[in-house]
Design a protein around this nucleic acid. Structure first.
Length: 430
RNA sequence: GGAGAGAUGACCGAGCGGUUUAAGGUGCACGCCUGGAAAGCGUGUGUACUCCAAAAGGGUACCGAGGGUUCGAAUCCCUCUCUCUCCGCCA
């Protein structure tokens, strides 16, 4: 949620920042609605003040057996007028809220200008600045590798659930679990995060807080009773501070959570239909920071490095990209994507997205901090990033560690989590 | 799922239709007292929106949430949510 005061005080600047996302937003409407709202508010509150004064006076008179009929008569006239005004005020408040809650976050000034993902800016590559060496044999896609190994069963996923669901079997299921445990251990033991295991179903308030609602309901799976399956652990974990006032010295909060994630992928028909890249259900290890405003910029750099560390330990080539203004997500002020190299596709694919949302989510959630000096409260800043998307990491391992004979070597750091298994071998078809 | 009891400020807790500002306590902050501290005494102590050029200072709303009754609701009525106790069921 954008700061209404900021919109009021410097609409041109806000409009310009919104414009940089590629879509214009008319703040005139907000301005007008807000003005109307405040006029009605002033009138309503004056009337409420009068009502309160009269009520008090009636109380006095009754206590002294006095005659309150004149006051009661004034109240008769006041009542309906006040009721109508209160109703009108609320509808205006809702109208303002509705418009403002649809506005995306303002891009940070350091975000490169651009229309779409083609204008994102590559910042760095690992392990070298050049494209990774091609494999010394024709690279297979992970779906071919996985099926030959008997670890990815797309037919079974379609059978028990439908399109975009997959069953992991044997070493594949084990590898997924190994990745989750490896990531959680790395972030907790070496990067200082606290592990959280949140609900996978959340309420509307939480989804509003992080910005998925009201605009993106069609991307979510709804369960009954107004619960939604989480599209990312960012939702339940960030919302842990919703409605809270956190003491300044308790910040930053740094949390890591493994969850399954569920997405409709409504707008992605025909995209990535094969393989594990785009599923309705996938696992992800998510990093969340709650910070003081002045430290969120540095926090985004650190969070991104923490995510990069996973790829480095797994020895998977990747690059780090700064999203341009036109490619930013709704809630993001600034975003770095990590893209892993996939030999089977011969290109980099997103495996992590690390964002600083500034005070945008905090305003929607009413998550604040109390300053040690001055006792003032102000919105916290929130950040989130994948560390990493587990399904896509599994894809990257299969494709990067594939051998000419169709087997897949297990990365060194995962072997302790694989019960000593160091190689996945093709099953012999009968 | 059934039966019952609850939800009040940072915390505990009173209030159950009006007697201006939610009693009292604890905590916290500041001050007095003290050689220093404790104790004691005094003062202050939430959030959001809004009025005012700003400050100072006002106003309104908020006693789990939403409706209702009433001239007036923390207090009465209805619905919902959550917590606790017992029973049932269950991984």
């Amino acid at each position: 949620m954008l700061d209404l005061k900021l919109i009021r005080e410097d609409p041109a600047w806000v409009e310009g920042r919104l414009q940089s996302r590629g879509k214009g937003h008319d703040l005139q409407k907000v301005h007008l609605l807000e003005q109307e709202k405040r006029a009605i508010q002033a009138e309503t509150e004056a009337l409420q003040a009068r009502r309160n004064a009269i009520s008090r006076e009636i109380g006095h008179l009754k206590a002294q057996q006095g005659d309150a009929s004149a006051l009661l008569e004034e109240m008769q006239g006041l009542g309906p007028r006040l009721k109508a005004l209160e109703l009108l005020l609320r509808s205006k408040e809702e109208a303002v809220g509705e418009v403002v809650s649809q506005l995306p976050n303002l891009p940070d000034l350091s975000v490169p200008m651009g229309r779409d993902e083609n204008e994102n800016v590559e910042l760095r590559r690992w392990p070298a600045a050049s494209e990774p060496e091609p494999l010394p044999f024709p690279a297979q896609s992970h779906w071919d590798i996985g099926e030959r190994l008997g670890v990815l069963d797309f037919d079974a996923g379609a059978l028990v659930a439908g399109a975009r669901f997959t069953v992991l079997r044997g070493g594949g299921a084990r590898l997924s679990r190994a990745l989750i445990n490896f990531m959680l251990d790395l972030h907790t033991a070496e990067h200082g995060y606290t592990e959280v295991l949140p609900p996978f179903l959340v309420n509307r308030e939480s989804l509003f807080g992080t910005g998925q609602l009201p605009k993106f309901e069609e991307d979510l799976f709804a369960a009954s009773d107004d619960f939604f399956l989480i599209p990312t652990a960012e939702v339940p974990v960030t919302n842990l501070v919703r409605g809270q006032i956190v003491e300044e010295e308790q910040l930053p909060l740094r949390m890591v959570a493994w969850t399954s994630c569920f997405r409709r992928e409504a707008g992605a028909a025909g995209k990535d239909t094969r393989g594990l890249i785009r599923q309705h259900q996938f696992d992800k290890v998510e990093l969340v920071w709650i910070t003081r405003p002045e430290e969120s910029e540095a926090a985004l750099e650190q969070l991104t490095r923490d995510a990069e560390a996973v790829l480095k330990r797994l020895e998977l080539p990747f690059r780090t990209v700064a999203l341009c203004t036109g490619d930013l997500g709704f809630a993001a002020r600034k975003t770095y994507d990590l893209e892993v190299w996939l030999p089977g596709q011969g290109r980099y694919r997103e495996i992590s997205s690390c964002s600083n949302t500034g005070d945008f989510q905090a305003r929607r959630m009413q998550a604040r901090l109390r300053r040690k000096e001055g006792k003032k409260v102000e919105p916290v800043h929130t950040l989130n990033g994948s560390g990493l998307a587990v399904g896509r990491t599994l894809v990257a391992v299969l494709e990067n560690y594939q051998q000419a004979d169709g087997s897949v070597v297990i990365p060194d750091v995962l072997r302790p989590y694989m019960g000593g298994v160091s190689l996945l071998e093709p099953v012999v078809k009968k």
